[in-house]
Design a protein around this nucleic acid. Structure first.
Length: 269
DNA sequence: AGCGGATGTACAG
DNA sequence: TGTACCTCCGCTT
């Protein structure tokens, strides 16, 4: 389940496994049968990500646009591919590799113009090398909305999800309910730079790790942590557990229908 | 077997 | 603000 780092990793993996090669395409589940038939046998020229959106180019047909949403998953692997199950929306395969897409919010063939329209409604992405945080700051610095809500707004920053939001605010000691316009420029610049570093590491490791070396269980003399989403984090889904730094209780609350996690003692207004 | 959630978004009103 | 949608997994019975 995906934040932006997952999608950038998928783009890189698609390039490696399928780039420049003709691929077979099919939709066992059926909802993308027409699109799959159109790209079947064509060469995947290029794969790229912007925020949580994945784009696969099959010129001259167009782009396959994928958004995993909350439940979507990809399974990529080397041949032999397992028998496709009836929930696979799209399988791409070659003699050597396969990619199965299940449960996406979006999987559609789109034109160049439609792709551009997606880019146009997304904010800067910490994982796109030419993007920077200035456009985001222009909105944040004028907004009465909480910084927690702004970080999840893909028009403000593209690719941040519920885990990176909680963790980056913790790492910078910022109360999630603070208004965007009450952040300082220096605070935002530090947050942006941290997102770039954390999310690049997320692409590399294909998981989210945010705990600094000096706060790991070993360094703090705590028992090793068992973590059900695969990474080391400070506050995400750790409600009612002790904060790794101050020992106070991590809190949770609902904000815009998403669960927010923070340490009221370490994160200040 | 059946439920409630989950790293997300879009649309209705 | 609420609801619908897509799938899987872990918990409860």
């Amino acid at each position: 389940m995906p934040e932006g780092h997952t999608i950038h990793r998928l783009a890189a993996d698609h390039s490696e496994l399928f780039g420049g090669r003709p691929v077979r395409a099919g939709s066992p589940q059926g909802k993308f049968a027409d699109g799959a038939a159109l790209i079947d046998g064509q060469v995947l020229e290029h794969a790229e990500a912007h925020g949580k959106h994945l784009f696969l180019s099959f010129p001259p047909t167009g782009w396959v646009h994928v958004h995993l949403g909350l439940f979507g998953t990809y399974t990529l692997g080397r041949a032999p591919a397992p028998p496709p199950t009836d929930t696979v929306r799209l399988r791409l395969s070659t003699e050597a590799a396969y990619a199965d897409l299940r449960g996406p919010t979006a999987c559609a063939l789109i034109t160049d113009d439609e792709k551009q329209a997606v880019h146009d409604r997304l904010g800067p992405d910490p994982l796109r090398p030419s993007d920077d945080g200035d456009r985001a700051w222009a909105r944040i610095s004028r907004s009465r909305t909480s910084v927690a809500a702004l970080l999840l707004d893909q028009k403000v920053v593209a690719g941040v999800g519920n885990v990176y939001r909680a963790e980056v605010l913790f790492r910078h000691g910022i109360d999630p309910y603070r208004a965007g316009r009450d952040l300082t420029r220096a605070e935002w610049d530090a947050i942006w730079a941290d997102l770039v570093a954390l999310m690049r590491e997320g692409v590399r490791n294909n998981r989210i790790d945010t705990v600094r070396p000096e706060h790991t269980p070993e360094a703090m003399g705590r028992p090793p942590r068992v973590d059900d989403h695969g990474g080391e984090v400070y506050v995400y889904r750790r409600d009612r557990q002790p904060c790794h730094i101050c020992g106070g209780e991590v809190r949770t609350a609902e904000l815009a229908a998403r669960n927010l996690f923070w340490c009221p003692n370490c994160q200040r207004r």
